Amino acid sequence: MDVFMKGLSKAKEGVVAAAEKTKQGVAEAAGKTKEGVLYVGSKTKEGVVHGVATVAEKTKEQVTNVGGAVVTGVTAVAQKTVEGAGSIAAATGFVKKDQLGKNEEGAPQEGILEDMPVDPDNEAYEMPSEEGYQDYEPEA
């Protein structure tokens, strides 16, 4: 019985440690998101679009440190934060509304985080759909 109880105690310690790591990862992701939003706020009209992409990228980098179902929630929060940063930029006159959601080359930025393969159960990952990809044929 002692062996059984000791095993359960060790398992509990492992769960607590994993929860603490997840909590730490979420806190880091939130900190990076805040950094990115402050970065966007300090940019001029020309830099705002690039700044919004930076927020998304920093958040995406930190999301990889967070495991399990938390990833889905962090990704949703990050996307809403990026959308909010863009709205703030438009409201303050840093950028025109028609410039939001495009990178410096004018290509749409939507789907940055949505296409990231995420499995809350950590069982399997699927690649994003290939609808947006084109076949590449090298020139002879």
Rank of each mutant, 00 (worst) to 15 (best):
A30W: 11
A140C: 11
G51M: 15
P108K: 15
S87E: 08
S42V: 08
I88R: 03
T81M: 10
V63G: 02
V15L: 11
L113R: 09
G106V: 05
N65E: 10
A27E: 02
Y125K: 11
P128D: 11
E57I: 12
D135W: 07
A11M: 15
K32M: 09
A11E: 00
Y39A: 02
Q99P: 03
Q99M: 11
A11Y: 03
V71C: 04
V118D: 12
V48E: 00
A30D: 00
A85N: 02
A89M: 09
Q99I: 11
K96C: 15
A56C: 14
K23Y: 08
Q109I: 11
K32P: 01
G25Y: 15
D2K: 02
G84V: 14
V49S: 09
K60A: 10
L8G: 00
K97N: 12
A27N: 08
V71E: 02
E137N: 04
A85P: 03
I112N: 09
G36Y: 12
Q24N: 09
V70I: 12
K80Y: 05
T54P: 01
D115E: 12
A29E: 00
E46G: 07
K80S: 06
A140D: 09
A69Y: 07
N103D: 13
K32C: 03
V52S: 02
V66T: 03
G36E: 03
N103V: 11
S87A: 13
V52R: 01
V48N: 00
V63E: 01
E13Y: 13
T33N: 00
V74C: 11
M127C: 08
G31S: 14
T75R: 05
M5N: 02
E61W: 12
V15G: 00
K6G: 01
K12Q: 05
K96T: 13
A27H: 06
T33W: 15
D135Y: 09
L100W: 02
Y125S: 07
A89G: 05
E126K: 09
E83S: 07
G132I: 09
L113D: 13
A19I: 05
T44S: 13
T75Y: 12
D2V: 00
V16M: 15
A69P: 02
V26R: 00
A89E: 03
S129R: 04
A53D: 02
N65K: 09
T64K: 05
V118N: 13
V71Y: 04
T75S: 08
A76I: 13
E131V: 11
T54N: 11
V66D: 01
Q109T: 11
E61G: 06
K12I: 03
E46D: 12
K34T: 02
G67T: 11
E123V: 10
E57P: 02
G67Y: 05
D2I: 03
A140V: 12
V71W: 15
M5C: 01
V52C: 10
N65M: 08
P120R: 12
H50R: 14
K21D: 00
K45T: 12
A30G: 01
Q134P: 09
V70D: 01
A78C: 07
Q134H: 04
I88W: 14
E13L: 02
E110H: 03
G31I: 04
T92Y: 07
A11K: 00
G25S: 12
V70F: 03
A91R: 06
K60L: 10
G73E: 03
I112R: 07
G86S: 13
D2S: 02
L38R: 10
S87M: 14
A30K: 02
V77N: 01
E61Q: 08
Y133G: 12
E28M: 08
V70W: 15
T59Y: 15
V74P: 01
Q79I: 09
A27K: 10
K34S: 01
Q79P: 01
S129P: 11
G41R: 12
P138M: 06
K34W: 15
